[in-house]
């Protein structure tokens, strides 16, 4: 019955549990993907060819870079160099926004071609394509939503570091936020080949 326990291992443990649940959340969608891929393989291949491979690859690189900057910021925090931490977190937020911009361009492009759920164009398309793009918008959309939340979390961390409420002695919040950011990255690493690289 310690008066006020500080148990960083426990906080991290809790964070990992949360990440498992997030994986299960996307896991449900991956199950759907697998089942429909099996049913509509050819449509998935032709659908994948309609996606912008360049933008997709860019986004992959951007997210990998942002994961790197987050990891570095934690290391910098350990070494107690506040300026570097702020710079690296700022970079992470920048990369995150860049990713969302690319996503916007990509989706907007699709919308202009009439490719969006429930559009007149999709109504006439083959069912396999409807499903492919349905999955595409659902999964990348949910991922983008997670990234948006991640951005807010990292942004909050930025201000907490600024005001020294996250410091070299107590940076478990930053540590856990970093873990969440990595999760977002990992999910994208799965989404990218499933949508852009199907042969």
């Amino acid at each position: 019955m310690s008066e006020h326990h500080v148990d960083n291992t426990g906080s991290k443990f809790g964070m990992w549990l949360f990440l498992y649940s997030e994986l299960m959340l996307f896991g449900g969608l991956f199950v759907l993907y697998a089942a429909y891929y099996y049913q509509y393989t050819t449509f998935f291949i032709s659908g994948g060819k309609q996606l912008d491979l360049f933008l997709g690859t860019m986004n992959t690189v951007i997210l990998l870079l942002s994961s790197f900057t987050v990891a570095c910021s934690i290391e910098a925090m350990r070494k107690n160099s506040k300026k570097l931490v702020l710079l690296l977190l700022g970079l992470t937020v920048f990369f995150g926004i860049l990713f969302l911009c690319n996503k916007y361009i990509e989706w907007n492009h699709k919308f202009q071609h009439g490719i969006y759920p429930g559009s007149a164009y999709m109504e006439q398309s083959a069912k396999g394509l409807v499903i492919f793009f349905g999955l595409y918008f659902t999964m990348t959309g949910l991922h983008a939503l997670h990234l948006l939340i991640g951005l807010i979390v990292i942004g909050v961390c930025f201000f907490l570091c600024w005001s020294d409420r996250i410091n070299a002695k107590d940076f478990i919040t930053l540590d856990n936020s970093g873990l969440y950011w990595h999760l977002i990255d990992v999910i994208w690493i799965f989404l990218f080949p499933l949508f852009y690289l199907i042969l």
């Binding site: 649940s21 997030e22 299960m24 959340l25 996307f26 896991g27 449900g28 969608l29 759907l32 429909y36 969006y116 759920p117 429930g118 999709m122 069912k127 409807v130 499903i131 349905g134 999955l135 918008f137 659902t138 949910l142």
Partner: peptide, 22 residues
Amino acid sequence: ATPIVGVTLLVVIFERLFGVGL
């Protein structure tokens, strides 16, 4: 287990709002 029904229900919501067709 809860996240699985969570995402399933989300898809039902998307289905009703946007008609994604899944």
